[in-house]
């Protein structure tokens, strides 16, 4: 079971976990990315491509499923406006064994940062607005998996 979503609505992590619980998988590993409130950040806005963002996430999910033995995989990314503390991205990988679930999670978050059409814009309390620039460290982490 592969479930991929790009959504403006809040991610219901408990409901997503329930879906994996119901599968009786031996091991589930998750990654949750949240909006940090660094530097008086008031809003994080995620821009996306209406077709390519979802297709990019689906491609990554299938690449992970080809690479590791996964019995269920959920990959959800929020788009639109968010405030500090909200969940931006949720990854849940289930497998009979922990090593594959953990590796798939790490692969997915590393590659998602460099391969999927999403752009972050930060707004701060003093009125500054800036688009986030890619970090070299993110490219290096993503390259480890190629």
């Amino acid at each position: 079971m592969i479930r991929v979503a790009v959504q403006p609505a809040a991610i219901d992590i408990a409901a997503e976990l329930d879906l994996h619980d119901a599968g009786g998988h031996g091991a589930s590993a998750s990654f949750i990315g949240r909006v940090r409130g660094d530097g008086d950040l008031t809003e994080l806005f995620l821009d996306h491509h209406p077709a390519m963002t979802g297709a990019g996430l689906a491609d990554l999910a299938h690449a992970a499923a080809d690479r590791w033995h996964l019995s269920a995989l959920t990959l959800i990314h929020r788009v639109g406006a968010m405030v500090p503390g909200e969940t931006i991205v949720f990854i849940l990988a289930s497998s009979p064994h922990r090593a594959e679930a953990l590796a798939a999670c790490e692969f997915l978050i590393d590659r998602l940062k460099t391969d999927v059409m999403l752009w972050k814009r930060e707004s701060f309390a003093d009125g500054r607005v800036q688009w986030v620039e890619p970090r070299e460290g993110d490219n290096a982490r993503a390259d480890r998996w190629s």
Binding site: L112, M117, K120, P134
Partner: peptide, 10 residues
Amino acid sequence: VALFPPVTGG
């Protein structure tokens, strides 16, 4: 054609 800056999701 879509034109855009390097991506910054995650």
